[in-house]
Amino acid sequence: MTSTKIPRKASAGLVILGVFFLMALLGPLVAPYDPSAFVDIPLQPPSRAHLLGTTGQGQDVWSQTIAGARTSLLVGFVAGLAMTTIGAIVGAIAGTFGGLVDDVLSLLTNVSLVIPGLPLAVVLAAYLPAGTKALLVVLVATGWAWNARVIRAQVLSLRNKDFVAAAIVTGESRLYIVFREILPNMTSVLASCFISATVYAIGAQVGLEFLGLGDMSLVTWGTNLYWASNDAALLTGAWWTLVPTGLSVALVGTALVLVSFSLDEITNPRLRAVSDWARALATRGIRPGASTPVVRDHG
């Protein structure tokens, strides 16, 4: 496999993401009805007039799913970007400067890592004014630490490379080295941090809105599930008010994870060697466990 070819996993993920992005972008153009308007008899199963049925409040589920994609994806990606940026700044500074700076920042990171996210998010969201901005703040505040830890570890391993030593000898400032030498050389790590942060943000956002925290007048995937559960969708058998939204969240999440796996494989030759090795063994009908791989993929 050459590194220029996009792996199958990644292309599947990119196609799914593309479909959802189009949905979010073109939302109002493709949606047959106003997502928050009362359009028909409540709790109708899927039919030709309403492809995915209607909600307990007589709204069109298909239109709601499309409209939800816009807000949920926007919040997810913006929060993911913010978390990666903060994580990169904290992680890079901790990793490069070392010493006391590193001790303080690492301690801060570890402390925020062990405090459970959702209960903290609930307390924060309850006190902040309900709205998209507040939600973003809550998501970033509870989710930045993991990225900082991952990026710090990567910076530490890059810090002793020759090109960094060369930059130091040239007399570049430390901040220049962090942002112009080290960070650009770990693009794939930053990308996979961004992806996992986005997955977290979308999931946490849906969870908080399902609890009733956030702006309940907006149409998002989280509020869709909140209203479905409030209208006792399950006890009336209205599965169609739940399935489209849940499936959308899971598809976007899976697509992001698929892209992230392939990023690892493209940028980490060791992983690629392992999968090539496994494939080579499989085509020869050899049971992989019984043999010793030539490449060690750890350490």
């Binding site: 739940l242 849940g246 969240v249």
Partner: peptide
């Protein structure tokens, strides 16, 4: 794929 679903959504489906 299963892990990408919100926990509570899987719970709703099992309940249903």
């Amino acid at each position: 794929f299963l892990g990408a679903f919100p926990y509570f959504w899987l719970a709703m489906m099992l309940l249903y």
